[in-house]
Design a protein around this nucleic acid. Structure first.
Lengths: 338, 338
DNA sequence: GTGAAAGCGCTAACAG
DNA sequence: CTGTTAGCGCTTTCAC
């Protein structure tokens, strides 16, 4: 049925090994022979069988990417960027979604493991020991998850959040709400609180909630009631919830309250008003993740101190933030509108 | 290095085949033996090697999905739905993005082909003959692309668009603009024009443009200048562009003009105001696509007339559409606002 | 530079 | 129900 190396060899009048070499180590074959083999191979429509190849050689030419939730608009661009980078380096990327559930993540990893040369685990939900165990079986790198001894890519929100805070301060804001949707002590939560405090801005925290659109809807009146003139949301999606609810309440953005998101997903660029947000560049992450992974795939079992690459962020200003409202506090607006 | 079936067999005191059966055809093994094998297998950390398995059995347990653009928010939910469905049927889904370029699509297909049992091609950009050729090598099904003889899933916009049009008509709209971003003669364009005409609503078409946010920004004033009181956009993204530009121009939605999108992506639910849109249900597509694909993977070379499954659509009403403005035509609003 | 031979880990007949 | 025996298609020593 399928064309194998054997038929090509017979047809080209050479041995199996020669045909094999033409495809796996072309330089080791006489140019004339190689040409002849290639010609008959393409004439016969021969395609190397990846299963056999990886069974024997142990290399698959693919990388696996496990993401927590492809429906989160933050991930598609990242996936695209990683795919682009990998493609340029001769790899295919196979993606699976873990649905943020440890056992689905485990299944996905097990499905991918035998068919890839290495794995990128994004925000893995696996226990630390499981991850260490896995790392012994296949090269892995972590993004947004810290495990000692495993190479990882960390996202540093600090720079971007600092710019956001500076921006708010320059516009006269003296208090800022913060809608949190992470585990207490998480990276995201900590950097935001720290930056706001260091700038001497009063911080009001609401949460932790789930990182959903509806959380924004819910939090909008809380922010107003507190009298904060600005709000930083856990991510763009939550920020959009705020925006929609503010609009429904007749609260103007940014005149009455400034809103800032995080991630710079497509949601931020397309909302009305456009959403100022802290951008995490998918390309930076793709770059870092592929470098790290290909690095450890290369060196065979030669353990070196686990590397950590930190990628930065920056503020993308848009129409949703501006000068603080001076004449009357936003908190009175709700009752007024009624 | 890795644990193989052989070691498990030795350890469990059985033969290779018994271990193999435990993992590939469990019912054929005595329950006691099976238990013992499973126990030692897990103790040793045995994992079946997919490469060897598919080399021998010809089955990979995976399905491939090629999508034109993962960054288009329409696709992630579809990918997720297909993954969910496949998972329940014992398959893993490997996804690749073609970037809507024939040669990238071809590369992705070639990378996936040897490691999957079948392929779902979404809106394939390949030439018809290439597709037919491919279908001879591996089971494939098409979504949103028509090629005689290949099983396919078609999306019928008619029902949803008809509901949208009924809705506009009931609200007194007598004219509706339509921003098109497809090849002339495309499914999407044709159904929309047909439904509007059949309802006796005056149709004004703008386009074809590219299906981008900026297209909406650009088209907003055109719609107003024409005096249409409602507008249907090629998709949600374009509709959001309209929404943002209307807001910038001080045109109220839906009071001054009604806006309807297509796809029901996350953008529609999270915009301000919420965007009424024609919903294409990802689950319907996932269902149809997996049924079709698993159907042809099952029957070995037994050709039957190519099946076509058509999935329907429906209107999701949201705040962006409402009664026609009666007192003054929208077209005058721009100059007034100045 | 090239060929022959030995498996990679597993499944699928075929006997027992 | 279980064990034995061949390979799946390919890469990779090892000779020549």
């Amino acid at each position: 049925m399928t064309v194998t190396i054997r038929e090509v060899a017979a047809e080209a009048g050479t041995s199996l090994s020669t045909v094999s070499r033409v495809f796996s180590n072309p330089d080791a074959v006489n140019a004339t022979t190689r040409g002849r083999v290639l010609k008959t191979a393409s004439r016969l429509g021969y395609q190397p069988n990846a299963a056999a190849r990886s069974l024997r050689g142990g290399r698959t030419g693919s990388l696996g990417l496990i993401i927590p939730d492809i429906a989160n608009p933050f991930f598609p661009p990242v996936m695209k960027a990683i795919q682009g980078k990998a493609r340029r380096l001769g790899y295919t990327v196979l993606v699976a979604d873990s649905n943020e559930r440890p056992n689905e993540e485990f299944e996905a990893i097990e499905a991918l493991r035998p068919r890839v040369d290495g794995l990128i685990l994004w925000a893995s939900t696996l226990q630390e020991e499981k991850i260490i165990e896995l790392a012994a079986r296949i090269p892995i790198i972590l993004v947004n998850r810290e495990v000692a001894g495993i190479p990882q890519v960390q996202i540093s929100l600090s720079a971007g959040v600092r710019q956001a805070v500076e921006h708010l301060k320059a516009y006269g804001h003296e208090s800022c709400a913060f809608i949190t949707c992470s585990q207490p002590g998480s990276n995201r939560e900590v950097s935001i609180r720290r930056e706001l405090e260091e700038a001497g801005i009063r911080v009001v925290e609401f949460g932790p909630y789930e990182a959903r659109f509806e959380t924004g809807l819910h939090a909008a009146p809380l922010v107003l009631a507190d009298g904060a003139t600005a709000v930083i949301a856990h991510n763009d999606l939550v920020a959009l919830g705020l925006l929609q609810q503010f609009a429904a309440l007749g609260i103007r953005v940014p005149e009455d309250v400034s809103v800032i998101g995080i991630d710079d997903t497509i949601l931020a660029a397309t909302s009305s008003p456009g959403l100022a947000t802290v951008r995490i560049d998918p390309n930076d992450i793709a770059e870092a993740a592929s470098d790290l992974l290909l690095g450890i795939i290369g060196r065979t079992a030669q353990v070196s101190p686990a590397e950590v690459i930190t990628v930065g962020t920056r503020l993308v200003p848009r129409a949703s933030s501006g000068p603080v409202r001076v004449n009357e506090p936003a908190k009175q607006l709700i009752s007024k509108e009624k």
